[in-house]
């Protein structure tokens, strides 16, 4: 896809501007590029689906959409070996600690995609007594993919957005990924007390 075809270009540009302001060494910058190239092109998902979106994710892997083209097909079942968790489906109160634990078990660098209305905001079940109104209440989310369920094309779009986001990250000298978690807890103090 061409650069202009993406939405949210301002967001990426903002990230790049921030990085430029911080300034980096040329060699370190090149290393960063290499590492980010590796990371962004080798996103291994954790198989995690709770409802309908998971079936669409299976379609994503199947022959017509074939996520293997991008190198996403190495779906790992063990969170230790996966790179990102794509939350597909509703997260309810009973599942919330499990999801949180899965997130903790992922090895850094780790990313979260909230896929589908339920994961983004609770979707059609928002008013229920035991549904989490969006996974961003318990996890720092990198990309949101709306839809109920999102079409496989939308999922690709979301994944490509994640790739773009990773490409402007900094490995050396920049913000540590673990600070992301700290920031998240600063915003949600009630969650930290529970862990």
């Amino acid at each position: 896809m061409k650069y202009d075809d993406f939405n949210d270009n301002e967001y990426i540009e903002k990230l790049v501007a921030e990085l430029k302001d911080a300034g980096t060494n040329v060699i370190v910058g090149k290393f960063d590029e290499l590492i980010n190239w590796g990371r962004s092109n080798s996103l291994w998902p954790l198989c995690f689906g709770t409802s309908c979106c998971a079936i669409e994710f299976m379609s994503l892997g199947a022959a017509r959409y074939d996520m293997a083209r991008f190198g996403f097909e190495v779906a790992r079942n063990s969170p230790r070996q996966a790179d990102y968790i794509m939350v597909q489906g509703t997260i309810v109160h009973r599942m919330a600690p499990v999801l949180r634990r899965l997130y903790e078990q992922l090895a850094e660098p780790k990313y979260v995609i909230a896929c589908g209305g339920c994961a983004v905001s609770g979707g059609p079940f928002k008013n229920s007594y035991c549904v989490l109104p969006g996974v961003d209440k318990i996890l720092p989310v990198d990309v949101y993919i709306p839809g109920c369920p999102p079409r496989p094309e939308a999922m690709f779009y979301g994944l490509m957005q994640l790739q773009r986001k990773i490409k402007v990250e900094k490995f050396f000298g920049g913000a540590n990924r673990q600070e992301k978690t700290k920031e998240f807890f600063a915003e949600h103090p009630e969650m930290e007390n529970q862990i």
Binding site: R39, R80, A107
Partner: peptide, 17 residues
């Protein structure tokens, strides 16, 4: 062809838990 190299770079700098 470069897919596996990307995988290798990534896995080299993944966190060891």
């Amino acid at each position: 062809l470069l897919q596996v190299f990307a995988d290798m770079f990534k896995i080299l700098i993944k966190e060891l838990i």
